[in-house]
Design a protein around this nucleic acid. Structure first.
Ligand SMILES: Nc1nc2c(ncn2[C@H]2C[C@H](O)[C@@H](COP(=O)(O)OP(=O)(O)OP(=O)(O)O)O2)c(=O)[nH]1
Ligand SMILES: [Mg+2]
Ligand SMILES: [Mg+2]
Ligand SMILES: [Zn+2]
Length: 596
DNA sequence: GCCGTTTTCGGCCCGACTGTTTTCAGTCG
């Protein structure tokens, strides 16, 4: 236990500070085109701060700590310091005097941008949503130039929809819907090729809409767009033109964007529609600097406008002397400069996975018998060399956690099944609860007989849980910290963790950290995976499956790892069980030694 | 506002669709 030093109470400025910069960006967007680069700058600062490993004060405390962050320079850096000292940013206070904050909310309504909102404010003195609704009801918009019937109708609908504003979809759900719509698009007469693009192709943890790019002969486009707009699931058509259409699906209200190009433009179109927006802008700026023009139709000589050969994404990247950048890395990070240096890693692939390290059976709250699971894995995941049964520990009462005494029977059952299978596929494990004081829910005398121990927190989400996690790491039988952040996407924020400290101790003790692949967990999240790997921590991917179909969640775990820039070697369960045992042995040796 | 294999100043993407226009601004991808 000498490892555990009291970690400083983690301060928490990031969410509020990021929100301020987001609002400042919106204010400048409202104030007009002359501020458009400032808008990009504040948006970028907002993104950066929302994806930090540590609290911003940690970076501010270090020399150049702030400047090393992407999108934070002289001016925003000073504002961060000001905020940390005074709790306010003077420039923001000034902005708020110029731009009523209610107007920012109006700009979030579909179809309302800065120009429209400015007119409403200037001419009708509208300051917020309520006043806009009242003005519409009073018929005040009808006399306004530029606000004819259709526009007013659109605003009304936007206001109504805004009330039922829904959260972003989980990646898993969006993939199912996306595949479904994609199949229907592929059936449309004239379609040659079609693929999912946008955030879905980049495998972001949440998805705003479904983007599909397709190829067809130009003569067929009109027909295709019409057929697409009248798909059985179509609730409403948002836009319908010569080359693209957007619909809203019945029930879910999910938006689907379809973009058509000719066959030879496919690579450029896929590149465009995959994004991200920031990646596109950076690529296009690079193209321009090299005397080219890049758009969704291809690469063109900026002077002659002649199209350069090259029809695939790979060829387009190569034209700019860049390595191919996998979609998962195309965000607003440093992927382009990395590709220029040819340092893009060979990312983890699904086929690299050799086993599942987190799953539940009927011995606690899983739906299936261990034997059923084992047979299913043999059939559906023949590449797996091991699966670890990690049922819950006693304190998880609702999940029917196992009592220590139950493990004798459990071991016997696992041995029986392995014998029947003729191979040691099934390993003995547990997901042991980390109790409020950081101690474990099962005794060491039991843990020492397990092949793999996942320790995780299932209570006390409101406080800083670093100490509890560190204490669990200090147990030589704990091999992995499960769902380390404890967040549930769209439902519950993760608890506070001093990630620096945790990564350091994980590394020192030889403990792995989990990517829990449940669709609403994806925990660790991608940006922390990257940081963990940089800190030398090994990653373990577990589906946390509670039913047979959930073993497919492994692909989500792999997606998170890829977005965290992971190679095969960074992931523990790409290795043979022999290597896994070595990993465990090193920790045992550490545990038996003087521990530094 | 930020940023830098060429630039510590002068760049920071480019095109489709809508609604209202008499020739295009605004918004979105
Ligand atoms: N060049 C360029 N491309 C853009 C711009 N906005 C969007 N795109 C491209 C890149 C995006 O990934 C793609 C789809 O746009 P979306 O608005 O659906 O964004 P995306 O799918 O990335 O995220 P989402 O989860 O839908 O919010 O279109 C832009 O302003 N410029
Ligand atoms: Mg999208
Ligand atoms: Mg879209
Ligand atoms: Zn759990």
């Amino acid at each position: 236990m000498e490892l555990i030093t009291v970690s400083k109470k983690t301060e928490k400025h990031n969410p509020e500070l990021a929100a301020i910069f987001h609002q400042m960006a919106s204010c400048y967007r409202y104030l007009g085109a002359k501020h458009r680069f400032r808008v990009m700058a504040y948006d970028s600062a907002n993104r950066t701060i929302n994806n930090l490993k540590n609290d911003i004060s940690e970076y501010a405390g270090k020399n150049d700590g702030l400047h090393e962050l992407k999108g934070i320079g002289e001016s925003i850096g000073e504002k961060i310091i000001e905020y940390l000292h005074t709790g306010k940013i003077n420039t923001f206070d000034q902005l708020k005097k110029k731009v009523p904050l209610g107007l920012l909310e109006l700009m979030d309504i579909n179809g309302l941008g800065p120009a429209t909102v400015k007119t409403l404010h200037r001419r009708l003195h509208i300051n917020n949503k309520e006043e806009l609704i009242a003005a519409i009801e009073a018929g005040k918009l009808e006399n306004l130039k530029g606000f004819a019937s259709k526009k007013v109708e659109n605003i009304k609908r936007g206001l109504k929809l805004f009330k039922q504003a829904h959260s972003r979809m989980l990646l898993w759900d969006a993939q199912r819907t996306g595949e479904d719509i994609l199949q229907q698009v592929l059936q449309l007469p004239g379609i040659k090729k079609a693929a999912l693009a946008g955030s879905l192709r980049r495998k972001k943890e949440t998805i705003g809409d479904i983007d599909i790019v397709a190829t067809a002969d130009k003569k067929d486009w009109k027909k295709i767009v019409t057929r697409f707009a009248s798909l059985p699931q179509t609730d409403r058509v948002l836009a319908k033109g010569d080359t693209r259409a957007a619909i809203v699906l019945k029930g879910s209200g999910t938006q689907v964007d379809l973009r058509l190009v000719q066959a030879h433009e496919y690579g450029a179109a896929l590149l465009y529609f995959t994004g991200s927006k920031e990646h596109n802008i950076a690529l296009r700026a690079l193209a321009r600097a090299q005397g080219y023009k890049l758009n969704e139709y291809g690469v063109f000589d900026a002077v002659t406008d002649r199209k350069l050969p090259g029809t695939t994404e790979e060829e387009i990247y190569r034209l700019f002397d860049l390595q191919f950048i996998p979609p998962e890395l195309r965000e607003a990070g440093r992927e382009i400069e990395t590709a220029r240096k040819k340092h893009i890693p060979g990312l983890l692939q699904l086929k690299d996975m050799k086993g599942d390290l987190h799953l539940h059976s009927t011995w606690s709250d899983g739906a299936d018998e261990i034997e059923t699971i084992a047979r299913y894995i043999c059939k559906e995941f023949p590449a797996y060399e091991y699966i670890v049964i990690t049922d819950h520990s006693p304190s998880e009462r609702v999940a029917h956690g196992l009592q220590p005494a139950d493990f004798t029977d459990l071991f016997r059952e696992i041995e029986r099944i392995n014998k029947k299978l003729g191979k040691n596929l099934v390993k003995k494990g547990a997901e042991v609860d980390i109790l409020a004081n950081g101690s474990l829910d099962l005794p060491n005398e039991l843990l020492q007989h397990l092949d793999w121990v996942v320790a995780s927190i299932h209570s006390g989400f409101k406080k800083d849980n670093t100490e509890r996690l560190l204490k669990a790491c200090a147990n030589k039988y704990v091999n992995c910290i499960g769902h380390p952040w404890g967040r549930l996407i769209n439902r519950r924020d993760g608890y506070d963790v001093d990630w620096n400290k945790l990564f350091e101790i994980l590394n020192k003790t030889g403990t792995a950290i989990e990517i829990n692949a449940q669709p609403d967990r994806l925990d660790l999240p991608d940006y922390l995976v990257k940081e963990a790997v940089a800190a030398g921590v090994m990653i373990a991917i577990g589906t946390d499956a509670h039913a047979l179909t959930q073993f497919d969640f492994m692909q989500l775990g792999v997606s998170v790892a890829r977005r965290g820039w992971c190679e095969k070697a960074n992931i523990l369960n790409t290795h043979s069980w022999k290597r896994m045992e070595q990993f465990r042995k090193i920790k045992l040796q550490w545990g038996n030694s003087d521990k530094l």
